[in-house]
Amino acid sequence: MMQERFPELNLGKQDCSEVGYTQSALDFPLDLPNRPLEVLLERSTFKLPKKVKSVHVTRPISKQGLQGMWDFLRKYETGTYIVLTSFGGRMDEISESAIPYPHRPGVLYMIFWRVRTSEDPAAAFSWIRDFYSYMAPYVVSPRTAYAACTDLDLGVNNQNGVTTYAQASKWGKMYFKNNFDRLVHIKTKVDPANFFRHEQSIPPL
C-alpha cells in the first residue's frame, strides 16, 4: 500500500515492523524497543526526562511548511520525535460538548512533539520551543493543546495560595475550550477543597 500511495518515500518491508499493541508501548512512547513485555512491570523503567508539546491542525500545511518541519527534525536528533495523529471520521460526528475532550469537527490531525531532556536540557528545551513557535502560522488560532500531553509552558497552578479562574483559563481553555467552564463548576461541586490537584489541574471557584 505504501508503494502505491506514497512511492516517493521508497519504503520497503525492511523499513517497517509489525508488533502487537502492548509491544508498541515499549517502542513508543517509552523508547524501549526489542525489550521483553515484563519490562512494563518495572516502575523504575519509566523515568524518562522529557518535554512535550501539542497542537491541532485544521487546514493542510503547505509544502514549504512541511519542509521547515523536516529541517527542525534534522537540527536536533537526540531523543526527538514528532507524531501526526489523524482525525476525522467518527471523531467529526461527536460534538465538542459531548465529553470534556473538545477537539472534534474540523480538526485534520494533532501534532505531538517529544524531546528527551536528560542529555542536554537547555538544547532540548530550546529546540522544542522554537519548533512550537515555528508552527504558529499553520495551526489552530487561538492555539489548542491535548491535555494528555501536559505542557507546563502554558502555565501552572500556584504552589501556595489559590489559583484564579483567569489564571487556569490560560491552559484550561487550550485543553478543553468551552468545556473548561463546565469542568470548573463540576470541580467546585465535587472537590471544593481542591484535594485532588496537580500542576495543571482544574481549580474550584
Rank of each mutant, 00 (worst) to 15 (best):
L9N: 01
Q23V: 13
R129Q: 10
M174Q: 14
A136M: 03
P49C: 09
R143T: 06
D153H: 08
R143H: 04
E93Y: 01
D191R: 03
K177I: 10
L9T: 00
A123I: 00
L108A: 13
S86I: 07
S97V: 06
D15M: 07
G68A: 11
Y165L: 02
P121E: 15
E4I: 15
V156R: 14
A122G: 04
A25P: 05
P100I: 14
K53A: 14
F176C: 05
Y134P: 01
E8P: 05
V140Q: 05
E119I: 03
Q14E: 12
D27R: 11
E93I: 06
D181F: 03
R143E: 06
K189F: 00
T164E: 13
F72C: 03
F196L: 11
R114L: 11
L30D: 08
A193S: 13
E4A: 09
P49F: 10
P36L: 05
Y132E: 03
N10Y: 03
D15S: 12
L66R: 14
I99Y: 07
V162Y: 10
Y165W: 00
G20F: 08
S141I: 14
S54G: 09
T163G: 07
I186K: 09
P105D: 05
L154G: 09
E96F: 09
M110G: 12
P102N: 01
K189G: 00
W70E: 13
I94C: 05
E18G: 09
S169M: 08
P204D: 01
A148C: 06
H198R: 12
E93M: 12
T80P: 10
I94S: 06
L108S: 11
Q67Y: 12
H198A: 09
M1R: 05
K170I: 13
S62G: 01
Q23H: 08
A145P: 06
W171D: 11
M2N: 12
H56R: 14
Y81R: 01
M110Q: 15
W127T: 02
R182T: 07
Y165N: 00
Y132P: 01
